[in-house]
Amino acid sequence: MNPEIIRVVGYVVAVIAFVALNAAMLVWMERKVAGHIQRRIGPKEVGPFGILQSFADGIKLMTKQLIVPEGADVLLFKVAPMLVMIPAIMCFVTIPFSEQLAARNINVGLLLIFAIASVNVFALLLGGWASNNKYAVISAARAVSQNVAYEIPMLITAITVVMFTGTMNLQEIVLGQAGGFWNWNIFPVGKNIGMVVVMPISFLIFFICSMAETNRAPFDLGEAESELVAGFHTEYAGMGFGLFFLGEYANVFIGCSLSVILFLGGWQGPFGLLPGVHWFLLKVYFLIFVVMWMRWTFPRTTFYGLLNLSWKILIPISLFNLVLTGAFIKVF
């Protein structure tokens, strides 16, 4: 048998395990972070520091009765949660955790991630629509228009990075940022002094968009609980809901790791120190912490405020940024 296939299969298993464990860890982390921001301690009694809390939740969700609501489209209703998970797992294929640790080094890796991640919104739409619940339908419609709106500035800013680095291969993008934090794309003083103006803005737009893409607060309009009860997963019980949950955290991880790869040097150390998976995870988890921090600090925007932000502010700025990038690459 081709050892390459074994390697890929092994990697897929590892990725699934990683996604599940990582999501469990992130749920625990979210609750702990929330607790400490909110002057309480969060989960504490289940295992040391409450670390087993997510496993208890997992066991419970898996052993819960599954309900398909009356009038729902049974097939789509059951498919939707899986559709959330599958693209999330597939995205991990091309993410370089370190120089060696990547399943497949694809030379259009960035494009692949964007293409696959877009399926996610399809799952939300199906889930919301198949539930036969008005709240879920409204929420699904919201999620779709939100994703469409934020995909555009996100892609445009990604293009600035691609223009700057000249490649769509994630591994090469990371390699191009070697040598120290002054070579990172967010503030590339070491490489192109002109891009110093453009890249921080690109990073900001990219980060905001990835937060909106993953339906995280303050952009969590899809599951705005004070308006739409629980949004598109109102009718999902047990593990169906659990998969939506896992998918959300997997997407948060992908969004943050893309930010890290494109702008923060991927697995490169800040001073040209040992490169490796530790740096990568450290940076990603820091960004995830920032995402959580935002969630527990800000109230939710309105739907129209959200669309205005994208169409009227982020898209023009990102287009302007694109033009500047072209100019600076030519000039410097």
Partner: peptide, 16 residues
């Protein structure tokens, strides 16, 4: 009210 608007944390500060 902030909870209605989607901000969770002020509720806990207020309750404190």
């Amino acid at each position: 009210y902030l909870l209605d608007l989607g901000g969770f944390t002020p509720l806990l500060y207020a309750f404190d």
